[in-house]
């Protein structure tokens, strides 16, 4: 890949892919999906819902398969199963003595297995690899439309309720005591999670979508003490990773989803090491200066 980078001028490296319609589409969708998932990842990391994100993103699998088989929008099927898994997790937790993380693991693997079985059984042109690993470079026009609509719905709701959701993550008791319906906020956040998982699996696939839902938030969390800044940093780092990941994937012919998530992980590692206040080398400069 380094040979490629040297052999072509940097400007061409950036512009050449843009001559292709499929690349323009892939870059736009990836950036948007990155932004949506990045924004939501702040709430996921602060609320401690990483495992829930993992669960919901895997649980949408049978929904996607069924929707494809019936000729429905894949997002509809994914959404039904995403919310359904959350409801089932809540139900089993309430009605049994099993601990929550066990219930989550149990439900999402069950749904995921159901999805894999359905793919192998239902005769259709569903590409298992595409669902598992995503393929922004091969995204269809109708999928783009769905992704755009869902993304804007999620962004709109998150911006509208950002303070209520932030308060819910920080101090749900206070939220309740001032008359805010935290039950609605709880399910609103879970619904947004399902929707984000649906758009996220477009670019990185079901297996890696949880990275989109936690890594940008975790990175931003290391960089600031302000919630608003955290959301901005998460969106920027997530969109940037998505765009850079697609470019790298294009030039070096590697799996796009893996490429996007690897860039995200690298950015996280940089923050982890060198974040001004919370990086592990934070004291170095203080000691040197003092």
């Amino acid at each position: 890949m380094s040979e490629l980078l040297i052999s072509i001028a940097p400007l061409n490296w950036l512009l050449d892919p843009l001559t292709h319609e499929f690349m323009r589409r892939a870059l736009m969708v990836s950036a948007l999906v990155g932004g949506v998932c990045g924004l939501l990842s702040c709430y996921m990391t602060l609320k401690g819902w990483a495992l829930m994100g993992d669960a919901v993103s895997h649980a949408v699998m049978p929904g996607v398969v069924v929707a494809y088989a019936l000729g429905l929008p894949f997002s509809l099927g994914a959404f039904v199963f995403g919310v359904g898994s959350v409801a089932l997790i809540g139900f089993i937790k309430q009605k049994s003595r099993i601990k929550e993380d066990t219930v989550i693991g149990l439900v999402f693997t069950g749904f995921f297995a159901l999805g894999i079985v359905l793919v192998s059984k239902i005769k259709s042109n569903i590409d298992l690899m595409q669902i598992l690993f995503g393929s922004p470079l091969g995204i269809s026009q109708s999928d783009v439309k769905q992704t755009l609509i869902i993304s804007f719905i999620v962004i709109f709701i998150l911006l509208l309720f950002r303070k209520d959701l932030m308060l819910y993550c920080f101090d749900a008791k206070h939220a309740r005591s001032i008359g805010i319906n935290t039950g609605i906020l709880h399910y609103l956040l879970l619904t947004l999670l399902s929707l984000s998982a649906v758009v996220g699996l477009q670019t990185v696939g079901i297996i890696l979508v949880v990275a989109m839902l936690i890594t940008p938030g975790a990175t931003a969390y290391l960089l600031t003490d302000r919630f608003d800044r955290m959301t901005i940093l998460a969106v920027i780092s997530s969109s940037f990773s998505s765009i850079l990941g697609v470019y790298i994937s294009y030039w070096s012919d590697i799996e796009t989803g893996g490429s996007i998530v690897l860039v995200q992980t690298l950015i996280f590692l940089i923050a982890f090491l060198f974040a001004p206040k919370y990086g592990i080398f934070k004291n170095q400069t203080l000691i040197n200066n003092g």
């Binding site: 602060l46 920080f170 001032i178 805010i180 919630f227």
Partner: peptide, 18 residues
């Protein structure tokens, strides 16, 4: 959760949300 990224001002402002 005291690791939450909010300032003292933000926390007190939460009293006004209602």
């Amino acid at each position: 959760d005291y690791a939450f990224p909010v300032s003292v001002w933000d926390v007190v402002m939460m009293g006004r949300y209602g």
